[in-house]
Amino acid sequence: MIQNHRTSFINTIRQSLGPDIESVDIRRKRIFPMTLSKVSQNLLQEVQSRPPKDREKLLARLMDQAVPLNLHVTPVEDLKDAARQIAALAREKKPEWGSDKALIRWSHPLLDALDLESVLAEQHIPVHTTAMYPKADLQQQKKSIRKNTIASFMGITAADYCLADTATIVMKTRPHQGRAVSLVPSIHVAVLKQDQLLTNLTELYTILDFEKKEQKQGLTHHMVFISGPSKTADIELTMVHGAHGPKEMHIFVVRSC
């Protein structure tokens, strides 16, 4: 293996910064402030005690912002309603590659509760999941999950948060939750609860940084933000949806569950 030059690389930078720089310890403390600022503290509190009527406003804002992004946001009363609507989509939409219809979803409590398997059983549309079983051969499981993801025309995920200002869903990567589910199928459906709505990036980062549980967990090894379906304007600046990722994206916001 080629030799790694980390030490000399960092030393070169230090030299380039000049002879007057302060010690690493002093600069470190300054650049990574460990304490929660007053502003962040207030913001955190505001988010955590947000009254229901403000959450309703966030939902309205999300719906507004989603329109120009070609992102469909549908509020639903409960999980049953969500399941019914997803099933309707699965029935109506045509698969982009091949003719067989199949769905793939995360293994996640909210999605398990939808029970799409039985809702779609009548139509004979299979619903795959990305659950992994630790006892069985991992490589074999990964292989078949990949095959199923590629064969599915709809991918269904939950999300950690949703930012109303930019119509962005935020997903950390956790076990049993395939990253490709929101990427490879032609249609991506995300299901979330209304109390997962936040205003903007600033609120999100404050929570990720300072909320106890989030702080402990960290960002995980991979996190993704998605704001609408895939798009490109690379040919004469003409907007086209569905460059490489999903052509269509739906968010169902469950009011009570």
Binding site: Q65, L69, D165, T166, T168, T173, P175, R179, L201, L219, T220, H221, H222, M223, V224, F225, I226, S227, G228, S230, K231, G245
Partner: peptide, 14 residues
């Protein structure tokens, strides 16, 4: 307002 996809990559998939 915000790019369509933003990925944070910190390591390989476990």
């Amino acid at each position: 307002k915000l790019g369509g996809y933003i990925s944070y990559v910190g390591g390989p998939g476990p």
